[in-house]
Design a binder for these strands. Structure first.
Lengths: 325, 325
DNA sequence: ACGAGTCATGAAATGCATTTCAAGGGCAAG
DNA sequence: CTTGCCCTTGAAATGCATTTCATGACTCGT
């Protein structure tokens, strides 16, 4: 910058003002400086800039790719979320640092903020990382979470109404006269657990029972294998609630091996409403989440926290899309 | 850092050495300094650090979320790629800055490097941004591209053998005695165009013809609508090559409306081999790409470029997975 | 025509860590 | 017992831009 200043016959502060769009410079000087800067391919060193200013204008989005490792990514759901967040950050001219989770260590996140790497965090899918988040909130690190919304937690979470999603599925099963339900999903994940709670709620006062099959991981293949193994050793249920549409497809395949079909032999409800769910044969009944606005909400809440305010958790509505299964 | 130095009764350089893991400090001093630093929640200011050092240890991954905007994300393919890149970068302890494309402006990318924001770029899906990339290469900015590999281009690209993918589909059509093929996809995208070329290659010396349907965008819904509209005004082909598995599903749905089914009435080949393709009814024949190693290759090539070396483009094999369609 | 007030610009201080270079302490060899 | 070397540590310079605060030029009102 000193060089540019010398060449343009002005001082460093003036160059700085020009480059940061300050209104305190004459149009003539501005044009001249800009031209010199451009001619020399000069760009403000962002590290020096961030060093001087206090803000980093960068948000870390924490996403566990590891859970998809190896196998194919089954469900595009989490990426739709990521896309929404990316867009919302771009609108606010904030940089997006995509990071893998720092193993269970709240101090690591705090350090990131102290080190002026990022201003805050957006956790996409809290998984089983719960207790760490509580500690992180205590440290005063700004962050928001996509996942299960639990009013007793001290941090701001945004998520779908998983309990409602579960209840909608249960009520659908009741309407079709199903009594022996199978819940497929890892109830260690808070979101999944809440869907199970919702499903239970629907049974109150009704004669329907719920069994649970906890699958190895969230992939298509695991779900297929686990479901097939389950059917080989247990009586078949007359209704299945799967944790994702991709899982629902695996369920259909596993049941088909036993000669069982939806909706004749069992009702089936998936989750997320991914496009192939509608195209599938049979078309899969599913619970839809409002992903498209989630990104903007997450970013807005996070900015409130970064600016020192409070941000309340938000529950987004879900709705059942009834199709053939 | 000066504070920590004072409190620990050492000098700034010593603290710096401890925190950067230099072997030039006694174990005793190291432990003491570390303890003081931890006790005070001190973290090295990364902006000051990067200002002094020349490297940023950050890579920008450029991905156009806009092309997925609004609608649901049809195909998880590009995200599997992203996941692979994210993992490869994490292994090398590099930060991943996820950025939207800077509109057609090669200078904007060069500035990012000059401003010490990132060391280089990974473009995921070159789309139609071709000429800009050529200019960017001329500027000497380090970057690699996932997409069509064209040896005449001056930059390093990594991509599947799209031409082979197309030819495999064509040969499959020939084997099943199909003569009237429909290619569905936007041939403005270099990758898609090469698949079309491959398909053409397969017709040489054979009596088969290729029609092209260019869809509005890459979404499930557009493909469904465009295909339906096409079938309403054109005779039905006896073979279809779609640009993705999700598109193939849309094709099946559109043909079904006309009472046409695969494989009885037409052969169908998709692309990417996403998990639901196998589960679909009918199970979709598709071309598989080697996504899982792509991330590591892209990162490796980019690092070579950043270190001033040359990096040759790489073509990854593809294979046809024959299923019911 | 003179004091008051604008406006554009510059000098110097500041934000923080790394790195050369020099110096001090300790130890082995002569 | 001394000389020379290695090892650990510190002083000072360096990387770069922003922001007060001060200064000079110039305009406007009376």
């Amino acid at each position: 910058m000193a060089d540019i200043a010398r060449i343009a016959n002005v001082s460093k502060p003036t160059v700085s003002r020009v480059l940061s769009g300050s209104p305190l410079v004459t149009q003539a000087t501005r044009d001249h400086v800009l031209e010199v800067a451009r001619a020399h391919g000069y760009a403000v060193n962002r590290n020096a800039q961030k060093l001087r200013q206090t803000r980093t204008d960068t948000i870390s989005v924490v996403l566990d790719f590891g859970s998809h490792r190896g196998g194919r990514i089954a469900d595009p759901f989490i990426f739709e979320l990521l896309a929404g967040v990316a867009e919302a950050l771009a609108v606010r001219k904030l940089d997006l640092l995509l990071s893998p989770p720092a193993a269970q260590d709240e101090r690591a996140y705090q350090d990131q903020v102290n080190a002026r790497v990022v201003d805050g965090f957006i956790f996409l899918g809290q998984g089983e990382r719960d207790p760490m988040l509580r500690d992180l909130a205590k440290l005063g690190v700004p962050f928001v979470v996509w996942g299960a919304v639990d009013p007793t937690e001290p941090y701001c979470a945004v998520g779908s109404d998983n309990r409602l999603g579960g209840r909608l599925a249960g009520e659908y099963f009741l309407r079709s006269g199903r009594k022996d339900w199978l819940f497929i999903g890892d109830t260690n994940h808070a979101e999944i657990a809440m869907r199970h709670d919702g499903l239970s709620e629907a049974t109150h006062g009704k004669s329907a029972s719920i069994r649970v099959l906890r699958t190895g991981d969230m992939s298509y293949t695991s779900t297929l294998n686990d479901t097939a193994a389950y059917l080989a050793t247990h009586p078949a249920p007359d209704a299945v609630f799967a944790f994702s549409d991709t899982a629902a497809m695996a369920v259909i395949a596993a049941f088909k091996e036993q000669g069982l079909r939806a909706p004749e032999d069992f009702a089936l409800v998936g989750y997320n409403n991914i496009p192939p769910a509608a195209a599938f044969t049979p078309a899969i009944t599913t619970v839809e989440q409002e992903t498209h606005i989630a990104g903007a909400i997450l970013v807005e809440k996070l900015m409130q926290k970064i600016e020192g305010g409070r941000a309340a958790s938000t529950v987004l509505p879900t709705r059942l899309i009834v199709r053939e299964t």
